[in-house]
Design a protein around this nucleic acid. Structure first.
Lengths: 127, 127, 127, 127
DNA sequence: GTGGTCTAGACCACT
DNA sequence: GTGGTCTAGACCACA
């Protein structure tokens, strides 16, 4: 299944980062499966109306992370995820993300309770 | 009460942004009170070992946002926060932070439940 | 349509403020339209013979005020002004300007009538 | 008759300038008459809760403009205004003030008409 | 190419 | 002493 890529210029998040996140999200949720082929760099660049280098940078970074595999002359594919991260690593990653966002929220005066409530409201409507 | 400013050069967050966040946090948590004087730009610059302009930039941005008030030749002070952000604005801000947090976490395959659990574990032990 | 930027070093008004005012004026009068790209910071700096940082400072302040939007690596653009200042804010701004104008004029012994007359003489011949 | 000095820290106008303007205004409106004695620098500084140098600077500048006269050991007085400015000079001064404020107003998108209307509303309630 | 951040150091205005 | 502005020049991140 293809991804319906969408870029938000106002988010402040760099385009290449948004592309990375959406591909990772696709893999995590099963929209993209092992071995599946991705759009060519050129095709995706045209579709998203961004520079070729921007898509290229996103693919390159995902390759480094072993999420994608490039076959010269054939295309780019979702990697075989035998490169699973360990449970501990996984927990550390989550902790890191939480810490960062808590500190940002705190700087605007939000409490942990408020953040949890906000998240709970989204538990239902999530795809 | 003074703030114990700390800069993390490795975080990738610009220095002036870190200063802004720490002051906002101080105001939000009550460490800094209305009318209180902040360190002089020069003093803080020396303390943090950054350039005067960097501190100045942070103070200036907070002044535009009505968080600080400066009086040339006198100093910089916590503003009279009658210019509180509206409840609606506040809610939008929180929603924005949560959305970004969610999308990044999701791209690594974490569920909302996992994220809420991670946050709940911090409700007690927060400084 | 481009702006014919001009800086007056003798005015006492900081350079970055003059740049801000001219852009605001351009937006207000329709010389600059939504989405239009502004000169690059470097180009404008060269044109005005000021430092890059000076232009940057002006652009940044206008970005905070939602007058401009910048996209790293792409350029700086006139923002979508759905964030129009409210009518009330606008009226307050005008009142503030008038009050200052009045108090200065009055301190030199001019009456309101004289000031109104002076302004009326300019209603026709304004560019 | 004494002046009821008032300083507004938020106006952005320097304190010494506010003092100058209020004295000039007093002279222009007849609240202060030729030969009348002003508060001592020290007294006014205490009254306004500002630094001695600030009042001192204001008096000094008014002396230069011949609005005040200082008699060593006696005090500061309203000068004998035989130093009247010519009609032409007066007109030029007014024109200068008008030009400056028009340009500021214009940068916020206000028209001359709006400024005139705003001024007209104050014709009645002026002391 | 674009904008963003930072430094070192200067000079000015205000209190 | 305070904050404000500006320069010259460097390096980084993004498209």
């Amino acid at each position: 299944m293809m991804i319906d890529f969408k870029l938000d210029p106002k988010s402040g998040v760099p385009f290449y980062r948004q592309i990375i996140d959406q591909i990772r999200y696709g893999v995590a949720t099963g929209s993209l499966n092992v071995g599946e082929q991705l759009p060519t760099v050129r095709a995706l660049a045209v579709q998203l109306k961004v520079n070729l280098n921007t898509v290229s940078k996103a693919y390159r970074e995902l390759e480094i992370q072993k999420v994608l595999e490039t076959q010269q002359g054939t295309g780019t594919f979702i990697g075989s995820l035998d490169v699973q991260i360990s449970l501990e690593e996984r927990q550390n990653k989550l902790a890191g993300i939480c810490t960062e966002y808590l500190s940002i929220a705190a700087s605007y005066g939000f409490s942990i309770d408020e953040m949890i409530n906000e998240l709970k409201q989204r538990q239902g409507g999530d795809k």
